[in-house]
Design a protein around this nucleic acid. Structure first.
Lengths: 177, 177
DNA sequence: TTAAACTTTCAAAAAAAAATGAAAGTTTGT
DNA sequence: ACAAACTTTCATTTTTTTTTGAAAGTTTAA
């Protein structure tokens, strides 16, 4: 294989990697996760070896502070880990690469951070006493239904996390009967 | 019941409604849906009767343009409907109130708008030819796994929408064995 | 056809969220 | 204990997203 070809292939890889990172970042934005956080995660997901903060900054063209804060956030979510290399002073980072484990962790965190607090409010507002106007009856009825629905959906997520290994495949089989 | 009590109860209702609308709006933000859009949806969800644009503007303290654009977006999502009242010039709006139907519509739209395009990119980037470096092998391997995973997850959503009635309850039963 | 009663559009303004970078903090080897 | 090598913090700046509001557009009734 010629030198020219080798360069061509290398470019292709870099382009593909970049496209993946950009796409994952954009998807993150649409799901309420900040772009850089999603990009760092994407980068670590497809990196063979642990990556230093310096390299992350370089590849994504972001500042040290930005990298630091988003890595911290990813570690708080439990989907990125710090690693220490023997004889190396600086820290390296790796992403959770097992996709089932990743899904489980994201589900758990979103449940804890967002769904549980929302449930609390739903319970609260659906508990106003009111057998008065139609409007009030409808409000209580609708928020109660919403509470039940969200609670059930949240429990499904909980159950899913118990399956751990291969829950998605099992789920597909069951759903399809 | 005294006049004073009636006022007290009315206030409680308004407070509860307001709290619900605010909470739903905040939840929307965290999930990549703009606050006003989520608030309008919340308002319509718990409203007994169709609501005019004027009333939405008044209750949420937003401009005409904002109300118009977000109502349009909600209708594009298929979860809010225009209604015409006999003899009335202006338009009224109602939300999809059946929660199963709501979940189905949101799933379908997010699949179409976000997941399908992401899948296309995943397929593309995982298809670079490369049996060269470890880094490239890992990239192809990981993006291929991600493609399979996202595809499966997306299919689960599709299957769920076929169940339509009560899919959630059935799912819970199945999951729990 | 006209005008009143509405709704929609979109350029500009405002608000919210994210990123920067320099100073402060921490850790490790000598 | 010191200083080199690194990371974190946070006030400020930048970018992105959302909102406004006035002009343009539409519909309906007379």
């Amino acid at each position: 294989m010629s030198y020219q070809n080798e360069i061509t292939i290398k470019m292709e890889f870099k382009e593909a990697k970049n496209k993946f990172v950009q796409t994952w970042g954009a998807l993150g934005s649409q799901w309420g996760i900040n772009k850089t956080m999603a990009q760092i995660h994407a980068l670590l997901m497809v990196s063979h070896e642990p990556v230093s903060m310096e390299d992350i900054m370089e590849e994504l063209q972001i500042s040290r502070g930005n990298a630091s804060m988003n890595l911290r956030a990813l570690m708080d979510w439990g989907i990125v880990y710090k690693e220490y290399k023997a004889g190396e002073r600086r820290e390296f980072f790796t992403a959770e690469k097992d996709l089932d484990e990743l899904a489980v962790k994201i589900s758990r965190e979103r449940s804890k951070r967002e769904i549980k607090p929302a449930l609390k409010v739903l319970k609260e507002v659906s508990s106003i006493q009111s057998d008065n106007t139609e409007a009030e009856k409808h409000f209580v009825d609708q928020t109660t239904k919403l509470y039940d629905f969200v609670l059930k959906a949240d429990n499904v997520l909980d159950k899913i996390t118990e399956y751990k290994d291969n829950w998605l495949a099992k789920l597909v089989v069951k759903i399809m009967k």
